[in-house]
Design a protein around this nucleic acid. Structure first.
Lengths: 103, 103
DNA sequence: ACGACATATTGACAAATTTCAATTTGTGTG
DNA sequence: CACACAAATTGAAATTTGTCAATATGTCGT
């Protein structure tokens, strides 16, 4: 599979915002409905909805609809992929000869 | 050690920008001087300098000054910490009972 | 000390992101 | 069907981020 810079940024943009990091932490002890997240966070419902969209788009979180409620949880597949992407991206390969391009 | 949401965002903000992701990829085959990065990227020198600062602040990249040149490379320690942080953050613990808070 | 060069910093502007109020969509219940 | 409720979408304002031109800082060679 290809791994564009764009795709990589989508994954890590999810964790660029303190509120979203907090949301992930809240999901660490299991699936939670949106309203529970909403009362834990200090933001409005549309703002939470926006953050959840970004988290879901990144693949780190998955949503499950049940009636009028929305349940969110950490995606094992998504987070594993994120760790792999981060490891791949920061893996150092064949070291080139040093020296500067400028004379 | 403590691990604030703020600290976590600093790490992952580094990988939020396509140019910075590209820079990390360029560093994968060894240390590079700023001017070499500059000719690979399509941006001005101040912009590159700005991105390098963010990458260094995140700990993922380290800089080494040699004369008038600046050499950058991927930090093994920094990237290992980033992977650990990501794994810690996305680790699912004791699953709580399901159900919605709303009646 | 002076000039040339590499990098960093400053200031300004454009683009993207975060946030909320208002509204819409979707779902279940009386 | 009408109402109530949960979540998503829209649109606008405030903030943050990315970018560049201009300038400053630091280093080397003459």
């Amino acid at each position: 599979m290809e791994l564009t810079n764009k795709h990589i940024t989508v994954i890590f943009k999810a964790l660029c915002d303190e509120n979203r990091v907090q949301i992930v932490r809240l999901l660490q002890n299991g699936e939670k409905c949106a309203c529970k997240l909403l009362e834990a966070l200090q933001c409005t419902q549309p703002t939470l909805s926006h953050h959840m969209k970004i988290l879901c788009d990144s693949g780190l979180v998955v949503g499950r609809k049940e009636g009028k409620w929305m349940y969110y949880s950490i995606s094992a597949d998504g987070t594993e992929e994120a760790v792999n992407v981060l490891r791949e991206l920061t893996k150092v390969g064949i070291s080139e000869s040093g020296g500067c391009c400028c004379k």
